[in-house]
Amino acid sequence: MIRELIVVEGRDDTVAIKRAVEADTIETGGSALNEMTFRKIALAQERRGVIIFTDPDFAGERIRKAIAARVPGCKHAFITRDKATANGDIGVENASPEHIREALSRVKSEMGAFQGTVLSWTDLIEAGLTTHPGSADRRMRLGELLGIGYCNAKQFLKRCTAFQISREEFEDALTHLYREIEQAKHKEEQ
């Protein structure tokens, strides 16, 4: 049983979570968060802890940000769009139990002051994660490898800091990404 309550968007997400793990959920009812929902989430955070597990789309990110701003200290689970898409519909409810368990095993916590080496905008440019052709695809895969989900370059840098991604973790994931790219190029050449 997962100790924390998992915040999801709707009833179908709850069903998908319960197929994958034994856990309690709080449903936001979509993006129309109300004061009662925020109070429930705050109480859950105080008593058991909270994992925010919203859809990997614009609305899901908006909900995630709103909750994190109002209820500090929440943990975050991310699932990639490809693992949460079925018949053109994107949502946690479409993910397999295996993919949900994988996302929950890689939960990230926002922490206070970061003691490690903070990544910079220059690091993202040099890594080809912004201002380069294909940077969105590289950022998507790197976000998956780091377990922080997909986002634009500015949010990627913020998440790396908020979730205390060390320079070593970043460089290891980047090395893995470049290896995948080289392998794909090698296959195309054959």
Score class of each variant (00 low, 15 high):
170 F>W: 02
88 G>F: 12
5 L>H: 09
186 H>I: 08
155 Q>W: 15
24 D>E: 12
99 H>P: 02
151 C>D: 12
178 Y>N: 06
177 L>E: 15
176 H>F: 05
19 R>Y: 06
177 L>V: 11
132 H>W: 11
125 I>W: 13
173 A>Q: 06
95 A>F: 06
98 E>T: 03
115 Q>L: 08
83 K>S: 08
134 G>P: 04
81 R>I: 14
96 S>Q: 00
4 E>K: 00
183 Q>E: 13
144 E>F: 07
143 G>W: 10
136 A>L: 10
186 H>Y: 12
119 L>P: 05
100 I>F: 03
11 R>M: 13
26 I>G: 11
140 M>Q: 13
156 F>A: 12
33 L>T: 02
185 K>G: 04
12 D>Y: 12
75 K>M: 14
121 W>S: 03
108 K>L: 07
69 A>M: 15
142 L>D: 07
122 T>A: 12
26 I>W: 11
18 K>F: 02
21 V>G: 09
105 S>A: 10
10 G>H: 12
174 L>F: 03
124 L>V: 09
114 F>D: 08
20 A>S: 10
9 E>S: 03
143 G>I: 01
178 Y>L: 14
102 E>N: 13
174 L>P: 00
180 E>C: 02
53 F>E: 04
43 L>T: 11
147 G>M: 09
57 D>S: 11
6 I>L: 06
63 I>L: 13
185 K>L: 05
122 T>Y: 14
99 H>A: 10
158 K>M: 07
44 A>E: 10
165 I>V: 15
7 V>I: 02
134 G>E: 03
65 K>T: 06
58 F>E: 14
188 E>H: 03
153 A>Q: 14
81 R>Y: 12
186 H>P: 04
151 C>S: 15
68 A>D: 02
165 I>W: 11
26 I>S: 10
162 A>N: 12
73 G>C: 08
